[in-house]
Design a protein around this nucleic acid. Sequence first.
DNA 1: CTGAAAGCGCTTACAG
DNA 2: CTGAAAGCGCTTACAG
Lengths: 342, 342
Amino acid sequence: MVTMKDVADRAEVSIATVSFVVNGTKRVTEATRERVEAAMRELGFARNPIGAALARGRTRILAMLFPALERPLSLTASAFFTSASRRARHRGYDLVMWPIGNDAEQIAVLARSGLVDGVLLMEVQLEDPRVAALVEHKVEFAMIGRTADPSALPYVDIDMSSSVEAAYAQLIAEGHEDIAFLASASPAYDHALVWRAMRAYREVTERHGHPTTLIACDEMPGDGRRIGERFAADYPDTTAVIILNEHAAPGLVAGLTHAGLDVPADVSLVSLGSSAYMAEMTEPQLTYMRTPGTELGELGLDALVDRLEDTQGPLPQVLLPCELVPGGTVAAAGPRRTPRRA
Amino acid sequence: MVTMKDVADRAEVSIATVSFVVNGTKRVTEATRERVEAAMRELGFARNPIGAALARGRTRILAMLFPALERPLSLTASAFFTSASRRARHRGYDLVMWPIGNDAEQIAVLARSGLVDGVLLMEVQLEDPRVAALVEHKVEFAMIGRTADPSALPYVDIDMSSSVEAAYAQLIAEGHEDIAFLASASPAYDHALVWRAMRAYREVTERHGHPTTLIACDEMPGDGRRIGERFAADYPDTTAVIILNEHAAPGLVAGLTHAGLDVPADVSLVSLGSSAYMAEMTEPQLTYMRTPGTELGELGLDALVDRLEDTQGPLPQVLLPCELVPGGTVAAAGPRRTPRRA
DNA sequence: CTGAAAGCGCTTACAG
DNA sequence: CTGAAAGCGCTTACAG
């Protein structure tokens, strides 16, 4: 390993000077800088971030916390990671995915370790024990998502109210009235996004005076399938479903099809918060509302780094709506035909 | 932040002694140890890994390298990460996912940084520039997968030959003869697993004197769909497909169905190297051969840590086969019916 | 503009 | 069994 000492010796300067040119922290004459840069090049120097971290008290490592040990990582979720990490590199940080449970204690360990300068929190819950732990341990963070009361916290999130409204409006326009809402339900997780979506759904059904039909579904294709297979019996009057559970959406289509229902003639579907990847799996292709994952990943990273670098700045709080992408699963409401088999 | 100095002061010992009890590196009298442990508890001490890393020259951080910036992260892939990181914690390391391209230069940067002690490499290619870079920069690593000649390298991998043979045998037993092989094809990536699978496929078809039909497909559902829709025209005599592209498998079923072909009556399918998650998305459910992701993640992590801790030990080299999970996409070969629509 | 020196929090021969 | 001290590679007031 070649150190600053080696570079300093070769360039015949002090290691302080080397540090100044490496970091650009102080003015250095053109001549010396060139000498130092030549030495670095010749020796193949790369600053040891461990030494720098110890001296500075900052590592320039950021962690994305996704409870990957407890639930599947969707392609949509990995889009957040991809775009956020690219953005991180752009701003001089490394963003890594830190596998951690939905667990305050593990946060405490991470915080005390001092290994990361900040945290990007995903899959935020209404009352998130991780948020409490991060605040308690004074770890800088930003959320992709938001808690029940996020007014004092930095976040970027999906504007779920408007997205639900848009999905509902789309179905209303096709003459649907009994429009169900299928949400992901995990007992251990009180996902804030789902809660807000359900609230928006209730509001919009009440405003229209239409029935409110909530369906809970695990975040696995198999549970969507199960619901689809029993759909005709369990929801005889429902002609459309808004889905907020991208893992279950293809399974739901499979289950409906298996039970002899036709999508969209018998049941129209809109998948909320998904991506082309999931939409293309089904026949017909899902009509969906795209999660702005790339945008939110970038904005979330910026929110975090802004906090890190300027604690006085305005609190970053951003909401982005999902955007409708037409597919083949929405049709005009009509009388439910008798299932062909089942 | 509470440091060893603080603990030492309170316990009235030297920081060396604190270090010895924290690490268990040297014998310490019961009495002193208890004093030190009490002090640690009272102060809420946690060893600063940055300081330790600088002193030791090791960080105890391991990186899983997945070219997540370039391709989707499947659920199967995330199972590797999940199980490997759990195992890492068990062995006293932190495994994080380091987003990095398929790029030797980025490996060099990571290596020179000294931030990680070792690397777990995924999505290994036949001639992998990352392997060359890791060797050149003397970074300890283990592969999940293997290069063209891995004889001198530590790895764990799927036993593709036997898995392909098993899938083929399954279809032969149902009377199929023209069995195609659909593999993921990405121009930038010469995925070793795919190459080995295709070689095994060629061998087995030749041995049986059956046709060899190779189909290339992008790792996206949409491309599977495209192939499915044109399947009747492009492969009129093919009655079964072995799929090695879990991203495309549901799309293929969707495309076949869309074109009026019945799965499995017209076309039988076996998805190689997949999981229940993907299998449950389609109607009927996919017959698949399960990737032993959990097992390979653990074994891969062990391989890496074994190298790290005992460079003299035997080179870890493990192959695990995929295991058949019956579904609804395999049926006896019969004459292709005329597509109902298309 | 440049350098000598202290310090970041730990580990580890070396003495005793 | 325990401690004083050097050292890991860097940053950053403080002098000059």
